Simulated scan of single mutants.
Amino acid sequence: MRDAPRPVEVFINHFRRPDVPAGDVLAAARLARRFHVTLPAYAPTPLRMLPELARRLGVGSVLVKDESPRFGLGAFKGLGSVWAVARVLARRLGIPLRELSLENLLTAAARNLPGKLTFVTATDGNHGRGLAWAARLLGHTAQIFMPEGAAGSRVESIRAQGAQCVVTDLPYDDAVRHAAAHARGSGAILVQDTAWEGYEEIPAWIMEGYGTLALEVLEQMEAPENGGAPLWPTHVFLQAGVGSFAAAMIGCFRQALRERGVPIPRFVSMEPRAADCVCRSLAAGAPRRVPGRLATLMAGLSCGEVSSLAWPVLRDGLAAACVCPDDTARRGMRLLALPAGSDPAVISGESGAVGAGLLEWLRE
C-alpha cells in the first residue's frame, strides 16, 4: 500500500569534522580500478548532465552517475564484489595486487586451485547479483541469502548468474547473520558488504572496489563532455543502507579534492523512513540499530545497522542525513525516466532515484 505523503526529515550532523584525514583511500581505489579495467565488460558509466532539471531547481548544474550499464548488472555493486573476490583469490595464489588482472588470475587459478570455492552473502538484490556474477566470472560458485519479501525478479536475476539463491523469513540484518553462520559452518567464504567487529577486511575490500566509481566521477567532472571548466560539486547526495557506498565516496572525494585544492562539498545521505540507521546513529553520536521488519520500497537501503567501517567516515564527513518516505523514491524515478526538455532519460531503481526525488522536494 502506498504510504501517505509525508515530508522528508533532515538531520544536521553536528558531529561533522570535515578536516579529519581518512587515510590514503585513493591508492586502494586505483589498485581496484587497475583490475577492473581488465574485465571484458568494463567501461566508465556516464555522468549525465541534466541542465533542464538544474534550471527548474535554480541551481548551476545537476549531475547523475548513471550506473545502469555497469557490467550488464544495472548497478554499481559488482565493482565491490568482484574486487573482493579477486583479492581473496590473489592472496591464496600469491599474486601481488599490482599484477592482478583477470587473465593472470584465471591462469594462476587453473594451475593452483584444486577446485571451486563458494562465496556466500546476504543481499536485498544488487550486491548478491554482483557477487554471483563475480564468482561465475572468476570460475567459482556463490550462495545468496535474501531477506523476507524479496522480489521474485531479483531472485531470478541472481539465479540467472548461476548462483544458488535462498529467500529467508528474516529481515535483512538477521539474514546477514544467517549468511555469516552458514559460511562458518560450511567452510565457504563470506563476502558481505557490511562490517562488524571481527569482520572488516573483506568489507574494506568491497569499499575499495566502489572507489572505481569515485575515480570515474572525478575524471568526468574535471574534464566534462562539453569541454568547459571543471564541474566541482557543492553538494553530493549519497544513498545509505549500511553506509559502505556513501563512506567510500566521501573518503575518495575528500582526499581527491583536498589534493586539488578544491573546496570539499557538503555530503548528504539519504535513507528510507523505515530503515534510518544512519540518521539515528548521527543523532545519538554512536551506532544505533533500527528494530523491526524495515519494510520499504527502497529494498536496497532496507538495513537496520550501520557498517562499523562506514560509521566513523559518515560521522565525520556527512553534513546532513535525510530520512525519505517511499514517495520520494517514486517521484525520483519518474523525474529521471521522464525528463523535461532535452535532458537524457535515466532509468533507475528506487534506491538510486531517491536523490532526484529529494532534490525536487527541497525545491518545494
Rank of each mutant, 00 (worst) to 15 (best):
L57N: 05
L31M: 15
L338Q: 02
T296F: 00
T296C: 00
A142R: 04
N226V: 06
Q161W: 08
D19L: 09
A183S: 15
R177V: 01
D24R: 09
A22T: 05
R30V: 07
A179I: 07
V82Q: 07
V8N: 15
G241I: 11
C252T: 01
V166E: 03
Q255E: 15
E148R: 12
M298H: 03
I158M: 03
P291A: 12
Q161N: 07
G198V: 06
G60C: 01
M249T: 04
G241K: 13
M221E: 12
K65N: 02
A75V: 09
A295C: 13
R129H: 08
V20A: 09
L358D: 06
R330L: 14
A43F: 00
F15Y: 10
L89Q: 07
A28E: 04
T296A: 01
G198K: 12
E103A: 08
L190K: 07
L218Y: 10
H178D: 04
H127D: 11
S186F: 04
F253L: 14
L53M: 12
Y172F: 14
L359A: 11
C303M: 15
V37T: 13
F237Y: 13
D276T: 06
A310L: 13
L63K: 15
P287T: 05
L100C: 07
A195P: 04
G352Q: 10
V167H: 09
R273A: 15
G241H: 10
L314N: 00
G317A: 04
A275K: 09
G317C: 04
L57T: 03
P21A: 08
G130A: 15
G130K: 07
L362S: 09
V278R: 00
A337S: 10
S61P: 08
L335I: 00
